[in-house]
Computed example of a mutant assay.
Amino acid sequence: MISVITNGVLFGLLLAVMLGPVFFALIQNSIIKGFKAGIYMALGIAIADTAYIFLMYFSVKLFENNDVVSFWMGAAGGFIILITGIMSLRKKSVKLEEQQVNTQRSNFFKQFAKGFILNGINPFVLLYWLGVMTLVTKSYQYDQAEIIVFFTGIIATLLITDFSKVALSHRLRAWVTPRKLNIMNKIVGVALILFSFRLFYHAFEHYN
Rank of each mutant, 00 (worst) to 15 (best):
Y142F: 15
P21E: 08
T134K: 05
M18A: 12
A25E: 07
F150M: 02
G34T: 01
N107E: 13
A16W: 08
G34K: 04
V22Y: 10
R173V: 01
F116P: 08
F54I: 12
L194I: 14
M73H: 03
L118P: 05
G77W: 08
A203W: 00
Q141N: 15
R105Q: 15
V94W: 05
K114T: 11
F58S: 01
S88W: 03
I31H: 00
E98C: 13
L13F: 10
I160L: 12
I47K: 09
K114I: 01
L13I: 10
V60I: 09
G38K: 03
T84Y: 11
V190K: 12
A191G: 07
R173D: 07
H170F: 14
K95G: 10
L13H: 07
I148W: 10
F116R: 02
I81V: 14
I32K: 09
N107G: 14
Y140I: 07
S70I: 00
F195V: 10
Y52V: 09
L62W: 02
S164A: 12
I86S: 00
F116E: 07
V69R: 03
R105P: 11
G44K: 11
L96G: 02
Q144S: 15
G120V: 06
V136E: 15
M41N: 11
K114Y: 09
L168Y: 13
E64Y: 10
D49M: 09
L14R: 02
L199F: 08
F11G: 02
Y140N: 05
N122M: 02
F58M: 05
W72G: 07
K114L: 06
I83W: 04
Y201S: 02
L126H: 05
T157S: 13
I80D: 05
R171K: 15
L127Y: 00
L10S: 07
L130K: 13
P123H: 03
V166Y: 06
L13K: 12
K186L: 05
R198Y: 10
N182D: 12
F109R: 03
K95R: 14
N102F: 13
F109M: 13
I187G: 00
Q104W: 06
G8E: 08
V68I: 06
L82Y: 11
W175A: 14
I39E: 09
W175L: 13
R105C: 09
N7E: 06
A46T: 14
L172G: 03
